[in-house]
Every structure is written in structure tokens, then in C-alpha cells.
């Protein structure tokens, strides 16, 4: 992966750092039970996944497919029913790993009776950050998310989008190495969405690892290096965004300045090999199509199609 490296690093270290596993899950399974221990939902089924330093990993899937559950398992907010999750090589329930993690929950779970500034200061203290550093960082982050003017107002007065942005600032207060963003663009206006995506890319360029989940395909397609597609708790696809979007049994030829004669010749060649010219033009497949295909296929054949922990993009 080329994007993860800070300028000036050599090719060798580049290779090494990209292979650093930040998050690893083995057979990770979560069954929600009710009070009496009866099974309610199998929210996640035997997930095997590795996420590497410096990449933006996208978890994609329709509502209720287990994305949030996966995130919470990685954070230790939920305990796995089977299997395990390792973050920075430590079990996900280990508190000390949180030192290097930033988390933006699905909705804004912040205290409504605190002001923007107090919120950042509070979370900063939870990271044991000294007061002076806290003050400086919260000022920077408030500036970054555009809330400097609203910093003295209580969160109860914030709009949804403002609260969401403060949620992001809160997730960055400790300058984390691993950032988990659960549906980062919900509640944001188009400009905010664009800014969020730019920010994610910037963070990646500064060497951070980002895991985001979304049901918005455009988000994932725009920023993610690799995606995993979850459907009903099962990992259906995993790979680099570009290779996933490659339609392998379709060949595209793009040539500039070809005369019509040559075109005819090519058609002839194709026909000689029993090929079939569908169209010649621009590439078309989108993530949306892929996604809908997977859903349709899963419904037709409920078998699994997960492909191991290592992506095929490398």
C-alpha cells in the first residue's frame, strides 16, 4: 500500500510497516442473549480479519449487519461469545490499549450538560493528559471541527451535526494511532461530509490506522483502501477497493486514437476467440453494484463467501 507512508521513509521500512497488524480477529462471534441467557441474535459470525497499520479499512453492510457490533467487540465494550479480538496485540478487553485509540460512536454519546470545551477537557483528563497540553489540543481540535465559536455552549444546544463534529474532536484528543469511526458521516451536511472524508485521508497520511463503518457506499468508495462487506453478521467480501471493483471476466480495453478499422479488427479477434463484445467505452462498475450483487447472491445461496484474514489486494 503506497499511501500509508510518511514522506522520506525508505522502500524497505515501507514494506515492513504496511505489514504491521494493528487489529486482528480470530473466529470472532457475538450472540446477543436476553436476561435469561436465551439467544436473541447472532450478530456476528466467526469473523477473521486483519487490519494493517496505516490503512483505511471500511466495514460495509446494510443496517443490522453487525458493523457496530464488530466495532464494540474491538473496543472491549462487548465481550465475544466465541473467538477473540486483538488490538495492538492485546486482548480487546485490555484497558491500556485505549491509550492509543480514538472512537467516534454511531451516535453522539456525550454529556449534554457539558460545554464543548469542558467535554474535550474531560476526555483529555481521562487520557491523563496534563492541563496545558489539554488546553492546547482542545483549542486546536475545536478549530479543526469548526466549533471554536460554540465552545462555551452546552451540548444540549448543539445541533446534531455540531455534536457529531465534537464527537470527532473528542475521538482525536489523545492523538490516537487507531481511529474507529462508526458511520462518521451521518448527520453531516454535504460540506461536512466532504470535510470529514478529507480529514480521514489526512489522518491516514499522518500514519494513522482508520477503521470506519458505513452503509453509505460513496463514503467507503471515496476513502477506503480496503473494505469488508458484512451481511447478516457474515463477512461476504474482503479486499482492496480497486480490485473488488474489477470485474474479472470482463476485459476493458482503453486505447487512444484508434481508427475504426482497427476496432473492426479487434472485434474480429474477439469473435475468433468466442468472445463477445458487450461494449467498448468507459469502466462502469461501482461499489453499489457489487454490493447489491452480494446481497442478491446471499439471498439466493445463503452459504458463506468469506475469504480469510489476508486481503487479496497485496
Amino acid at each position: 500500500m503506497s499511501t500509508s507512508v510518511l514522506p522520506g521513509t525508505s522502500a524497505e521500512t515501507k514494506l515492513e510497516t504496511t505489514r504491521d497488524v494493528v487489529v486482528e480477529t480470530r473466529n470472532l462471534t457475538k450472540v446477543y442473549r436476553d436476561f435469561w441467557g436465551r439467544q436473541k441474535v447472532r450478530a456476528l459470525k466467526a469473523l477473521d480479519l486483519s487490519i494493517f497499520r496505516g490503512e483505511i479499512f471500511g466495514l460495509l453492510g446494510p443496517n443490522g449487519s453487525g458493523k457496530t457490533t464488530t466495532m464494540k467487540l474491538l473496543l472491549g465494550l462487548l465481550f465475544p461469545t466465541e473467538g477473540e479480538a486483538l488490538v495492538f496485540g492485546k486482548p480487546a478487553t485490555d484497558v491500556s490499549k485505549n491509550e492509543r485509540i480514538g472512537y467516534l460512536p454511531e451516535e453522539t454519546y456525550l454529556y449534554r450538560f457539558l460545554t464543548g470545551e469542558e467535554t474535550l477537557d474531560f476526555y483529555g483528563r481521562l487520557f491523563n493528559i496534563p492541563a496545558a497540553v489539554r488546553r492546547q489540543r482542545s483549542a486546536e481540535l475545536l478549530e479543526l471541527v469548526g466549533l471554536t465559536a460554540a465552545r462555551k455552549r452546552q451540548l444540549r444546544e448543539y445541533s446534531k451535526g455540531m455534536a457529531r463534529r465534537l464527537g470527532l474532536a473528542q475521538a482525536l484528543i489523545n492523538d490516537p494511532d487507531l481511529i474507529l469511526l462508526d458511520e462518521p458521516t451521518t448527520g453531516l451536511d454535504p460540506i461536512g461530509t466532504r470535510a470529514m472524508k478529507d480529514l480521514i485521508l489526512q489522518l491516514r497520511d499522518r500514519g494513522k490506522t482508520i477503521i470506519m463503518c458505513s452503509h453509505l457506499l460513496a463514503d467507503v468508495q471515496d476513502v477506503c483502501d480496503r473494505v469488508g462487506i458484512l451481511y447478516q453478521g457474515e463477512l461476504k467480501e474482503l479486499g482492496r477497493v480497486d480490485s473488488l471493483l474489477k470485474i474479472r471476466d470482463v476485459t476493458e480495453i482503453r486505447v487512444a486514437g484508434l481508427p475504426p478499422v482497427a476496432l473492426e479488427e479487434i472485434k474480429g479477434v474477439v469473435e475468433r476467440h468466442n468472445g463477445q463484445v458487450q461494449f467498448i467505452g468507459n469502466p462502469t462498475t461501482t461499489l453499489e453494484e457489487l454490493f447489491l450483487n452480494i446481497v442478491a447472491e446471499s439471498e439466493a445461496h445463503p452459504g458463506r463467501r468469506v475469504r480469510g484474514g489476508v486481503s487479496d489486494g497485496h
Binding site: V95, S96, N98, E107, Y109, Y111, L126, N128
Partner: peptide, 13 residues
């Protein structure tokens, strides 16, 4: 209110 989730994902004991 799930505000606890934002808290316990910090290195707080």
C-alpha cells in the same frame, strides 16, 4: 444514554 460508552473506551479504569 450510552454516554458511558464514550467514557469506557478511554483508558479509564
Amino acid at each position: 444514554n450510552r454516554t458511558i460508552q464514550t467514557v469506557v473506551t478511554k483508558p479509564v479504569r
